Computed example of a mutant assay.
Amino acid sequence: MTGRLLRVAVQLLDRQIVDRDDLMAGKVDDVELTVDEDGAALVAALISGPGVLAGRLGHRRYGRWRERMESTLEPPGERMTRIPMVDVRRVDSAIHLSIGRDRLASMGTEHWVRDHVICHLPAAGRKGTS
């Protein structure tokens, strides 16, 4: 992913992230930009995760509630993931990565629900049950 002109708000923000196994892995919540010596802005990384989304919601009641919920479920270092552009394989209608979704913070809440709720259900883990 070098030398391509991207419109950040249109082509990156809120786009679906797809991991190396073509599994959905969250959305792009923010971008990290750097400025080169010529003054051109370059996308250094994509930022994803529940901690970023909560911050983007502002200080309205839902934003504050979401921030409290996410901070309860996720340790601070696991609430967002910085995805360097070197890990981006392709940008089209989705953002395709060369890494697995298990490395992304966007999966943290799903893992928490699996480990603390789903695994305690009577039919959890049994094949052939709905």
Rank of each mutant, 00 (worst) to 15 (best):
R101D: 03
V31C: 07
V86N: 09
A123S: 11
P50D: 08
Q16M: 11
D115K: 12
A94K: 01
M69D: 14
G3F: 11
P122L: 03
E74T: 13
I47M: 10
M24Q: 07
R90N: 01
M80H: 13
E110D: 12
T81K: 01
E70V: 15
V35A: 11
R89H: 06
T81C: 00
G39S: 03
M24C: 05
G125L: 05
T109S: 06
V113W: 09
H120K: 15
L73G: 13
M1Q: 11
D14V: 04
R20E: 07
E78Y: 06
D22T: 05
L121I: 05
V43I: 04
E32K: 10
T34Y: 07
V10M: 04
A124D: 11
A44L: 09
D22H: 09
I83W: 02
R4Q: 14
S93D: 13
I95Q: 01
P84T: 02
V52S: 05
G128P: 06
R126W: 09
L33A: 08
H120R: 15
V86W: 08
E37I: 09
M1H: 10
D29M: 08
G100A: 03
D87C: 10
T129Q: 12
W65R: 15
M107R: 12
R89I: 03
L13G: 00
D102I: 06
K27I: 02
L57A: 04
R126F: 10
R90L: 12
R66A: 13
P50F: 06
H111C: 10
G55P: 04
V8D: 02
M85E: 00
L53K: 01
V8L: 02
I83N: 02
K127H: 11
T109C: 03
S98H: 06
L42R: 12
R82C: 03
M24I: 07
H111I: 10
I99C: 01
D19N: 07
V35Q: 14
H96W: 09
R61V: 11
K127G: 13
V88R: 03
L104F: 04
D19A: 02
R66S: 07
D14M: 09
L97D: 02
V43L: 09
I47W: 09
V18C: 05
L6W: 07
R7I: 07
D30M: 06
M80Q: 14
T2A: 13
L13A: 08
T129M: 12
V117I: 15
E74P: 03
R64K: 14
G3K: 11
S106F: 03
V91C: 07
T109M: 07
S71V: 10
V18G: 03
D19E: 01
G51C: 05
H120G: 11
H96I: 03
L5P: 08
R79M: 12
R4M: 13
D115R: 14
V86F: 08
D21V: 01
G77N: 13
R7W: 08
D30F: 06
R79I: 03
V8Y: 04
S98Y: 00
A9K: 13
M24H: 05
T72V: 15
V52R: 02
I95R: 00
G49C: 02
G26T: 00
